[in-house]
Amino acid sequence: MSGSAPYQPLLLKIIHGVSAILAIAAMVTGFLVYNTFDGRFGKVPIPRIDQIIDIHGTFAVFFFVVFPALALYSFHAGNKKLLQKDSLQNLSQVSKPIWWVSLQRIANTLMLIAGFLAVLSGRMMKEEWLPTRQLNEIWYSLHLISWVFIVCCFALHILMSSKVGGAPLLLSIFSLNVRPQDSPKQWSTRLRNWLSNLSATSEGRIHHLMQNNFPLNIIEIIVLAGILTALILPLFFSGD
């Protein structure tokens, strides 16, 4: 299904690349945390890493810092690669090109949902739970579920991107080609234009919400609200 080499905007390559590295590191170290302190559902016989919680937490915090930028870029500049109004309907056209494209868009959207679930549940955890064997805490259970979810979504994201775009799409992420209109010098102008669009009247925003991919707009609100909750909510439980 791959054609000519696609072009990936520089800003997307930076945000996507950094997010991917941090997400992979968080997933790997997250499994090592589970393997070291839990292991109820099976474990791998590897050497214990005593500081693995701190290592995992460091990667998770950096991912949390970058994730809002990835979400905002994806829901706006990259919204064509996310869930569309007809994506679910197109799933009836099994094995046709639009079926694979729709699967890819759904996988990309699920990846953002999985990311917000992981950061929210992770932010609500406390470092002392696992060393003291408090394995039944609800936020830890949710974090385990979110780990499984994000690993599955990440695999699906890679699989669908490979199927739809093939090697050219995957290699375009590492391409050093930058178009003049994509220069960092243009980023401030694009940011001002985007902010000015957000300052539209309430009536205009509601009309846009209802007429332009309503399901995706709802998912965007949920994800961004989840990120904000992950930032604020732990402050109220820090003394527990």
Rank of each mutant, 00 (worst) to 15 (best):
M1H: 01
L11V: 14
L11C: 03
L11K: 07
I15N: 03
I24Y: 03
I24M: 04
I24Q: 00
Y34I: 05
V44L: 14
V44N: 02
I49P: 00
I52K: 05
I55S: 01
I55H: 05
F63H: 10
V65N: 10
F67S: 06
A77K: 13
G78A: 01
G78C: 05
L82D: 09
L82T: 05
K85Q: 08
K85D: 08
S87V: 09
L88P: 08
Q89N: 03
L91G: 02
S92K: 15
W100L: 09
W100M: 05
V101M: 04
S102N: 04
L103N: 10
R105G: 07
T109G: 07
L110D: 03
G115L: 10
L120R: 12
M124F: 12
K126Y: 09
E128H: 09
E128M: 01
Q134P: 03
E137S: 00
S141V: 13
W147C: 05
V148L: 13
I150M: 15
V151F: 11
L156E: 02
A167Y: 02
A167I: 06
S175P: 00
S175W: 03
S175V: 04
P184S: 08
R192N: 04
N197L: 13
G204Q: 13
L209T: 11
M210I: 11
Q211F: 05
N217A: 01
I219W: 10
I219Q: 10
I222Y: 02
A225R: 12
L233M: 12
L233T: 14
P234F: 11
S238D: 10
